[in-house]
Nucleic acid binder design. Structure first.
Lengths: 202, 202
DNA sequence: AAAAACATAGAACAAATGTTTGCAATATTC
DNA sequence: GAATATTGCAAACATTTGTTCTATGTTTTT
């Protein structure tokens, strides 16, 4: 079973090559860099890795090997939440970010930059980028991004979601702030559930 | 300047193709999906994008176009910090994660899973993964990962770094905990500076 | 030790794909 | 509107690169 190590070395090489170059290696690249003497050997390695399900490979295509899950998913940053004007049109995003897919496997995700201190006690700080899974409903206790229209108080906010006495309560995790129970309950719209966050100390 | 749009469409296509398939498209892929009638045309587009510096391309290589900066950097998760046994050998990592390079451009980065509540008031919670830039020194007020050996109290911790009266002070951001001023100052070793974090609510 | 299974090499082949060339269509300039 | 430049097309060509074949060495099994 010593050969197993060689296989893993190849797998790792493919991953690294892809990271560094932006495209996958050819069998000849592997030969050169891994001191393999024959393209047939490298070809064999790749096929064995494929059989083990450790990578995908399209037959007959050039440079078409891909290590399963390169580990990231691209997600759009849609805007700022909990301040003045909230989310803009979907297409006017501020760019895409890559986040680790291992953690965030949802289908329809987006990012929002948080403004304000209303969730500070849940560890969500001003400037954080929250990862939101788009959905229209929420369970009790989940942190959500919600929109409502209550005269002056309107826009999108991040709050913990509760349903109390048939009414939706948006609870800030900040002991100096009060729960929000929108008058116009019908106007409340859940945009999604917060499933993660990223922060950059700078 | 209407053609500019077509170019951008191609650029976007290449990006998307790469994201979806894990490897770049060929000129023929572009023709099929973008309704371009000739490979020479697609070839032209790619070269023009290259001249504008919007993508890189290796001559004569197959599928060797790459849109500058796919937006992510791979970083190893090295272990757990601030609990029992801390960081293991570098090679025994728990896998790699992709983080957005736009935010975290440092050279030598790694991740650590945080255990404990000692930095809760800085918004760093139990279970968070912190992004650490490897360096041996620190400035006053920076959050660092440090190791020291003080008899019973030893291991790696995340703390805010201060230097007071010539002594290094490791300050927990938790009002119920006291500053740590290791007796054996010589044993203090800065492993890196915390430059970001990721959290997954699950 | 022979047999069988496996791993690797070297070379040749075939398919995929980048590149060039010449021409037609379209837009731009004068 | 003619001249000129730009853009796009089709087909041929050239290179890269996946794949196959056969031989040889190496390990495992009988």
């Amino acid at each position: 079973m010593i050969r197993q190590e060689k296989l893993m070395e190849v797998l790792d090489y493919i991953r690294r090559f892809n990271d560094e170059n932006g495209f996958p290696p050819t069998v000849r690249d592997m030969c050169r860099d891994l001191k393999i003497k024959s393209t047939a050997t490298a070809y064999d390695y790749v096929n064995r890795l494929k059989e083990k399900g450790l990578l995908e490979k399209a037959e007959n295509k050039k440079r078409a090997v891909v290590v399963r899950g390169n580990g990231s998913v691209r997600v759009p940053l849609l805007g700022v939440v909990n301040a003045g004007q909230p989310i803009l049109a979907v297409e006017q995003n501020e760019g895409y970010y890559s986040i680790p897919e291992a953690e965030f496997k949802g289908e329809d995700l987006f990012l929002l930059r948080v403004h304000g201190e209303s969730m500070i006690e849940a560890g969500i700080c001003d400037g954080d980028k929250i990862i939101v899974k788009r959905q229209q409903t929420a369970e009790n206790g989940e942190i959500v991004v919600a929109m409502f229209d209550d005269g002056t108080e309107n826009g999108a906010t991040v709050k913990r979601f509760f349903k109390k006495d048939g009414k939706i309560v948006l609870h800030p995790e900040n002991s100096s702030m009060d729960d929000i129970i929108p008058e116009n309950q019908a106007s409340i719209q859940i945009l999604g559930k917060v499933i993660g966050l990223m922060r950059s100390f700078r």
